[in-house]
Amino acid sequence: MAKYLLLKHYRGAPSAVNDVPMDQWTQEEITAHIAYMNDFAGRLEKTGEYVDGQALSPEGTFVRYDGEGRPPVTDGPFAESKDLIAGWMVIDVDTYERAVELAGELSAAPGAGGKPIHEWLELRPFLTASHNVTECHHP
C-alpha cells in the first residue's frame, strides 16, 4: 500500500520512441489516444488503485516572497527551463512492481500511426506520513 506519482513531462524527459507531436497526428489518432487515457483511469478506479489525475497548462509563473509589505515578485514563464511537467496521475498500489507495470501501460498510450508512444514517465514514491514501525531501534 503505497502511493506513487506518475509524472508526464512536456520537456525534460528522455525522448519517446514514437516522438511525433500531437499536432501532426490524425483526428482519429487523437481520439484513440484520449479514449486510451480515459479507459486507463477508469480501469484503475475499478481496481481500487486510482487516487488522482490532473493535466497542467504549459504556461506557468514563478512566484516568490519579496519582503514585508511588498507584493510577491513574479517571473517567467521561462521558455528555456529544463523541466516542464505536463500532468500527473497518483496511484495507490500494493507494490513497486505494480506501479512500474501501470506506468508501462500508461506509456503505451497510442500516438502517431496508432502506435504506442513509448513515452518516458517519471515514477516517484510519496513520502509517507510517519507510520507505526514496530520495534525499530534506529535513533
Binding site: 478506479e45 475499478k46 481500487g48 488503485e49 487516487v51 488522482d52 495507490d92
Partner: peptide, 16 residues
C-alpha cells in the same frame, strides 16, 4: 484512513 477517494475505496471493497 488511507487517503484515497471514496469511489476508489468503494471499488476496492466491492472487487474484494
Amino acid at each position: 484512513a488511507y487517503l484515497v477517494p471514496e469511489a476508489t475505496m468503494a471499488q476496492r471493497i466491492s472487487r474484494a
